[in-house]
């Protein structure tokens, strides 16, 4: 692994380096899901908002294909991390029944 590859963090949530991404690709990963399953890139709190394009770019370059042809992984809820304590106070009708962290959730 080249030194610079080892120094460059691609997935900031999970501290995955460019070297680790490239190793997974060299070993046969051709999709974002495969790289994610091998390295954890994109599994952190931001869900790949920062790294997924970078990883797709690396796969595309290695395979000599346009980025648009690289199979994307699915976006999964809840999109933004939510505390379990807040989820448990939602009522069955889907309304927030006096959540103690409401201000935090809505930013008010």
């Amino acid at each position: 692994m080249a030194k610079e590859e080892h120094d460059i963090i691609v997935c900031r949530c999970e501290d995955v380096t460019l070297g680790e991404i490239r190793k997974a690709i060299r070993e046969g990963a051709t999709t974002l899901d495969e790289v994610k399953r091998i390295t954890r890139a994109g599994m952190g709190p931001c869900q790949g908002r920062t790294c997924r394009l970078l990883v797709a770019g690396e796969i595309a370059r290695y395979l000599g294909k346009p980025v648009s042809e690289i199979l994307q992984s699915r976006y999964r809820p809840p999109v933004k991390p939510v505390k379990m304590g807040d989820l448990s106070v939602i009522s069955e009708e889907g309304e927030n029944s006096g959540c103690k962290c409401r201000e935090e959730v809505t930013g008010q």
């Binding site: 599994m43 952190g44 709190p45 869900q47 999964r76 809820p77 809840p78 991390p81 939510v82 505390k83 379990m84 304590g85 989820l87 448990s88 939602i90 069955e92 889907g94």
Partner: peptide, 28 residues
Amino acid sequence: HSWQFLKRMSDIMCRLVPALEGVRVVRQ
């Protein structure tokens, strides 16, 4: 996936392990 699952899961687990109240769900 459903939000109802998040709700039921959080209800039971926060009761069993109260420290989970402050832990964030990242993905379902």
